[in-house]
Write a protein that binds this DNA or RNA. Structure first.
Lengths: 207, 207, 207, 207
DNA sequence: TATGAATGAGGCTTCATTCAT
DNA sequence: AATGAATGAAGCCTCATTCAT
């Protein structure tokens, strides 16, 4: 249920009860079990939607913009990631939690396979962006899968880190700016002939 | 209890029960409550230990190695972080989860303050490394706090991301290699006059 | 539904759900309630069918084989009972359970009356077999209703007992052989001038 | 809990709830789980007690009364069985249900093993009574294990059958008389040189 | 006559926490 | 300071039953 996502977003996986969700969806608890085998599976289905949206965005970049210059490739990647983040920040955070947690072991094999497939696919699609850049001679001759992994790590790291600062220090949400800077640095770091120096000082908000 | 950390490491925050912990510590459940107000506080105390260890390592870098060249500063940072990771991988992962979760709201004010203080301190110590590099004219003229945040985001991102791949795809643990490459890229990205290109192709293991 | 009996046979009364039954019958759950007031009544209706079949078999013995010698009367009885068992072993076992359980109190009065009537009828028909034997002077001068009760007790006892051994010890199903021996002993026990001793050693399989 | 047995006796396995039991025992639901892993195990533990009592009675017969005449052996057996029945009729009935039901599959391996062992032991002890009779030349030369199985089948059959009549027809409880007659017939049936005919007409109450 | 989505009461079980000793 | 038996609230989930179509 699209609406039941709100409950997970508000309370997190373990604090949200099936009754909360049922109430929010204006259904009875039993009805939820017509559509989802159990709580974990309901939760994971929502995560799946994000992964799916993510893959769509990535595919779009790779397919429609082949002529892009490397610098723009990184920018496009950053923008796709940020859009995914904005699409549903809390579920994305929950998904990042899910991925590195024991909850995965309760899932039905089919659901787990879907998650695996989508994860792998998103990495590979990302890697293809780097492959192109390497082929152009613009990116350093690094293993593109490794670069894809790192860019993903940076994405999830920034998102979770800013979330953490938001909760602990009541800070504003600086995900956008932090991503901006992080990707600029990363882009410079993998370009073969980087420009002399950056002019932007866009990271003002980040503390 | 130092030894009860094993239980959280094995089972994760929500799956570990107070009785598990008491048994491992050869105490009774009731006794735990003499030392810790509740489960969350016990867990957070352990997280606190990691944060403390982390700060010690960072302080050591800043204090004892002032003459370091920027390239080595990054290397030292990377090594400190990897040591912290190796000190207790699972607790570190749990701590990263904790930081962006609702559990924080259950903590006693004092404990929460300690966590806040240590988090801020580790960021600031890290920032000082970058300040020195900027003063030397070796690092780009970026906001050092922002750089510290990003380097932390990369660290947590890499750790969680590799953990995720380990669980989902049964992959080996490539944290060390991935950190290596990520920091190399990051280092190149923030140096003012970077060398022409990298020679290392150290990312072989990352897939 | 005749076919839905399979579900009770497979899963037993409490494990079988109305949805299981509906699916097996290619009907919807709601439809079942057009024909049966509730689950217990559906189950009992099936038990009724066995009781009916049983009565038919017994009537047949009494009516068509009046000239039988006592020894053969017992044999005919044994065979009728074994046929009923083979007709649907699991439903018979379930019926034996039903008869001594609280489920009976949920039944509609009409259904309960049917069960009572059939139970009584089968006892009386059985008793008539013994009456004839007593009249012939071949069976001991015992209360025929009592003998009928005992023969029924032996039947149900053997069936449940063998089922128990089958489940607990993974033994083969020795109902036939055990019935054989039990009835032979019983027959000898109630004959007025029993033969010297048995020759058969047919109980080989029973352990 | 000795007292919680009342609830099972009143309501039967599936209708009795853990809360009922806890209330009867003046405990909280959670406390029950300190002593029993789950509902089935609690139930089975009670059944176990009956099986244990049964074995004690049987052992006593075999050990202390070696000089018994065969006719008395059967009588002693009948009396032991009736005592066990009287010790706790409803639990005995429940145990007979348990033995031929799927509930067995939920039990812990240890408990299941205990049940298996006790079941086997009671059969073997019973068989030894028959062995002695056969050795004396008083009982027919039948497989003693088979005879033991049959005597057990008769016991459980009579108990369940009378229970059934009690519930269905509101009859009095004639277990004692029915057992009496059934064992007399059985005894006559397996004796090598049976007396001419019985004198007792003790089955008056059985209908 | 048939459907099948929806219900919601109620069962089993867990586990953080307490308190008399 | 330590115990550990007991608690009881609360969660997840099942499934007999209903009712609008």
């Amino acid at each position: 249920m699209v609406a039941a996502k709100r409950v997970f977003s508000d309370k997190g996986l373990s604090k949200a009860t099936m009754e909360d969700i049922a109430k929010e969806a204006e259904l009875s608890p039993g009805t939820l079990y017509l559509y989802f085998k159990n709580k974990d599976e309901l939760f994971s289905s929502l995560s799946l939607r994000i992964l799916q949206y993510l893959n769509i965005r990535l595919d779009h970049i790779v397919n429609s913009e082949k002529e892009m210059r490397p610098r723009n490739r990184i920018t496009a990647l950053k923008e796709a990631m940020y859009d995914v983040y904005e699409f549903d920040p809390v579920m994305l955070i929950n998904m990042f939690h899910l991925q590195s947690s024991e909850t995965l072991k309760n899932l039905s094999p089919e659901l787990l396979d879907s998650i695996k497939a989508l994860s792998r696919s998103s990495i590979q699609t990302t890697a293809r962006l780097f492959e192109a850049g390497i082929a152009d001679g613009e990116f350093i001759d690094e293993h593109p899968i490794a670069l894809a992994g790192i860019v993903w790590a940076i994405f999830s790291g920034v998102v979770l880190w800013e979330e953490s600062k938001r909760i602990i220090n009541n800070e504003k949400n600086y995900v956008k700016q932090t991503l901006e800077v992080a990707f600029e640095i990363f882009g410079r770091g993998i370009r073969k002939k980087p420009e002399a120096g950056p002019k932007s000082k866009s990271a003002g908000g980040v503390s």
